[in-house]
């Protein structure tokens, strides 16, 4: 684990850390992220890497320390002695289908939600999603809020979600919490975000366009 500026050292001065990435022994400098260590060690086939700052959710890994295995993001996790790392395959396509344009108004949203996410009300409270989330989101609670129709609060719970979908992988009921969270955020905006300043400007522009059209018609 690094470190702050005060303990940083010029590379090479401190002993290397020995770890395993995708089954290969790798030596890395202390303070390196697991992604850096994979590059440093020339580990092949590491293509699930993206933003390198923890917001794209691509670099999903399983990690073993001693007897404990956890999941996380490789760009946000640092090398440790004897840690075992396996880069996970990309997440599978979601099993839930909806198009937000199909929703006519918001009054049937609860029925729609439970039709789209029938599993959401079957949470068995194993806390697997909470443990899996690299962002510390209270996933299980967020799902419960959504299942109770409290979409605004549910969406707020998922504010920092980076869609790594580790919670989806960790859910034994196949609830797909990340998508439940996103659904909650989307319907909140879709049905409730009606900003006066934007609406006013859109109307102004619409009238301008109509005037332009009239002018052109008159010219003809």
């Amino acid at each position: 684990m690094t470190t702050s500026n005060t303990t940083a050292t010029e590379s090479g001065q401190t002993p290397d850390v020995a770890l395993t990435i995708n089954g290969l022994a790798v030596n890395a400098h202390p303070g390196m992220s697991l992604v850096e260590a994979a590059w440093h060690g020339g580990v092949p086939q590491v293509t699930s890497v993206g933003c390198l700052e923890g917001v794209c959710g691509s670099c999903r890994v399983m990690l073993r320390r001693g007897k404990e295995v956890t999941v996380g993001l490789a760009c946000q996790t640092f090398v440790e002695d004897n840690i075992e790392v396996v880069f996970m395959p990309p997440a599978s396509a979601p099993q839930h289908h909806y198009e937000i344009s199909d929703f006519k108004d918001g009054w049937d949203i609860h029925a729609r939600f439970h039709k789209i996410f029938p599993e959401a009300s079957r949470c068995r409270h194993c806390h697997g999603c909470d443990k899996a989330c690299p962002k510390g989101i209270t996933v299980e609670n967020g799902v419960a809020l959504a299942a109770a129709g409290r979409y605004r609060e549910a969406g707020e719970a998922f504010f920092e979600c980076v869609m790594c979908e580790l919670c989806d992988a960790a859910c034994p009921e196949l609830i797909a919490p990340a998508h439940v969270g996103l659904f909650s955020r989307r319907v909140t905006a879709h049905f409730h975000l009606r900003p006066p300043n934007l609406i006013h400007r859109l109307e102004e522009l619409r009238q301008e366009r109509m005037e332009t059209c009239r002018d052109e018609d008159n010219k003809k």
Binding site: I100, S101, L182, R185, R186, A189, L193, P195, L198, R201
Partner: peptide, 23 residues
């Protein structure tokens, strides 16, 4: 610009609002 915001909101994107509801 304004129409882009309208479209993004209809897709379900949230933006910060002032207390009176303006963007």
């Amino acid at each position: 610009g304004p129409e882009v915001l309208h479209w993004l909101i209809s897709q379900g994107m949230q933006f910060d609002q002032t207390p009176s509801g303006d963007l």
